[in-house]
Each structure stands twice: as structure tokens, then as C-alpha cells.
Nucleic acid binder design. Structure first.
Ligand code: ZN
Ligand code: ZN
Ligand code: ZN
Ligand code: ZN
Lengths: 154, 154
DNA sequence: TTATGGGGTGTGATATTGTAACGTTGTTGG
DNA sequence: CCAACAACGTTACAATATCACACCCCATAA
């Protein structure tokens, strides 16, 4: 499920990275936003908004849907997480600021999700948009199927 | 909005094509399924399920959400339409059976949507999935931005 | 012929996902 | 301090999607 070695470290690395970036960019990384980001990374996979809400309510019983969605909006807008449109779920970005165009491999079996941000894909997409005289603002590329680990187990 | 010359013909072409394919593949292209496909093509753009339901209720007052979703499932499963995950909407496929991998350019202004199924993109994606030892079953590629027509009008 | 089974549909209820609106609180810069 | 604005609390609601169960139709087999 999680392919990291030490997941506690994996989480805290992500939080600290966000903390640093928010400081640099003068963004308000409030406790609430930090908590949602932590919950997303704790899952280390696509997390559903209402699952996050349930978890948040453990420490913040008065939390409401809007509480979660507003934090998610902030985190998405600033590149700390991505929305996975095909799953209606949210996943932490492993390299915020590097680039906007993140592509995903989603395993239908183990639900693991990994980024596969190949520049060759970006180039191919750019060539196509150019050819169509289309000015691209946002790209959603989500590939579902079976990961290597799960294929082995069959 | 619609870039076709004669939209009535555009619609009927799509319906007849589906009719033919269903006959060949022994699929049951019922009146209901045909009507939903027609409604989707009449919009000639991404159509929302509940808008389709409202339209369907004009001729079929007792239609319910499940009525629409079941027809959509059939149409998707057999390649006649695609779900646009980033919009929660459904769009007719302009070339059913040709290939499964359809990519979309979605204009945020005029809401027009066009398929841009470039083999170079497919190749780039395949190279990446192969490199990640990932067995891809389904690809969602949706590019939002501004189309040529809308850019001109600024 | 009747029995049987499966696919498609009708129908009501419910689950899941996401927003709008408005007031309050807190921070920040003048 | 005060004004402005962002963040948050809270309520209500909208939008999207699925489940469960009954019923009908039709093809096939007994
Ligand atoms: Zn990313
Ligand atoms: Zn897997
Ligand atoms: Zn298509
Ligand atoms: Zn346009």
C-alpha cells in the first residue's frame, strides 16, 4: 500500500515541506490546513473528503463539510495535494512546486496511487494542444489498472 | 458551440452508428438507451446526468435517476459515450470502436469539448506505464483551457 | 406447452459528494 | 484604534450517484 520506508517520516517530511513553502510564499498554513494535509498523508493514498471529515471530527467534533473542502481548496490551489477526478478523492503531491502537471497511476487492486510525471508525456500533450490551437490551463491524466506488485500476486 | 455543419445529421449519424454496432454485437439498443444517446448528442457537448433526466422526463415523466444512470452505464461500457470525470458529465464518442483511449480538450469558456486522440500521446503514456511496470486498463486525459475560437474573441 | 432464468426497467429510498449564504473571529496594515 | 480582509463556524441545501426489490419480457429448455 505505502511504498515508503518509514511512513512517519514520510508524513512529517511532507508537512515540513509545506510549512517551508508556505513561509516562503507568505501563505497561512493554519492548524486546520496542516491537520487536513497530515490526514491525507497518513492515508498515503487517495483520501475521500468525507473520510477526512470523519477523522477530523475525532479532534475537532464541530467540523463540517465546508471545513474540509475549504482546506482542500487551499491545499490544491497551492499545489500540496491533487484532486483525483476519476475517484473523487485527494492525494498528497510528492513534489510541490516542481511542476503543475502531475500524472497518476492508480491500481484498482491495492488502491495505491503513484505519480508518473514524464516529460515525454507533457511534450506529446503540448504538441497536440498546439496543433489544435488550444491554450491548455490544466491537465488531468489518470491511468487506472494494476500495479506491478498486484500483478505478481495473481 | 457545435462545430458540425448539420447537427440533425450529426445526431442521426451517431444513432445509426450505434444501432449498427449494437446489431453486430448483439447488444440490446433499447428505446431508452437510444433516447439517452440522442439527448447526449443533441447537446453536442458534455451533458450532466440530471439535465439528461430532466429532458428525459419530458417524454417519460416517471424516469428516475437510476433510469438515466443505467443507460449511461450501458453506453459507456460499450464505447458510445465517455464520462468526463473532471466535469461529472457525459459526452458522445465520435469514433466508437476505433479505440478506447480518447483524450479531451475542454474549453472553459464555450464548454465545447473535442477529442484529441493523438497516437503520440498514447505512445508516450504506454512508454511510461511500461517503465513503471504498470498494466493500464483505462486512461483519463482531460485538458482544460481555452479553445481557438474563444481566444480570438478576447 | 409450461417452467425457468436473465436482462432490462419501475420505483422508492438512501448514500455520497459538494456549495451557498451569512455571521463571527482573528490578523494585518494604516 | 480602525478598516479591511482572510479564515472559520454553522446551517441549510444542491448535485451526483447507488441500492434494493419488484415486475415484465423474452429466450431457452424441459
Ligand atoms: Zn504532484
Ligand atoms: Zn496494486
Ligand atoms: Zn471517443
Ligand atoms: Zn471555447
Amino acid at each position: 500500500m505505502t511504498q515508503c520506508e518509514d511512513h512517519e517520516e514520510c508524513i512529517s517530511t511532507a508537512i515540513e515541506r509545506a510549512d517551508r513553502i508556505c513561509f516562503q510564499k507568505q501563505l497561512k498554513f493554519t492548524d486546520l490546513r496542516k491537520e487536513i494535509l497530515r490526514l491525507i498523508w497518513e492515508g498515503h493514498g487517495p483520501q475521500k473528503a468525507y473520510d477526512l471529515l470523519n477523522k477530523l471530527q475525532k479532534t475537532n467534533p464541530s467540523a463540517k463539510p465546508a471545513t474540509v473542502y475549504r482546506a482542500l481548496d487551499f491545499l490544491i490551489k497551492n499545489g500540496f495535494i491533487h484532486k483525483v477526478a476519476s475517484l473523487n478523492a485527494f492525494v498528497g503531491c510528492s513534489h510541490p512546486l516542481k511542476h503543475k502537471e502531475c500524472y497518476f497511476l492508480i491500481c484498482d487492486d491495492c488502491k495505491n496511487i503513484s505519480e508518473c510525471c514524464d516529460p515525454n508525456i507533457t511534450a506529446a500533450i503540448q504538441a497536440t494542444t498546439a496543433q489544435n490551437e488550444f491554450s491548455a490551463k490544466n491537465t488531468t491524466l489518470e491511468i487506472s489498472g494494476h500495479c506491478n506488485e498486484c500483478l505478481k500476486q495473481i
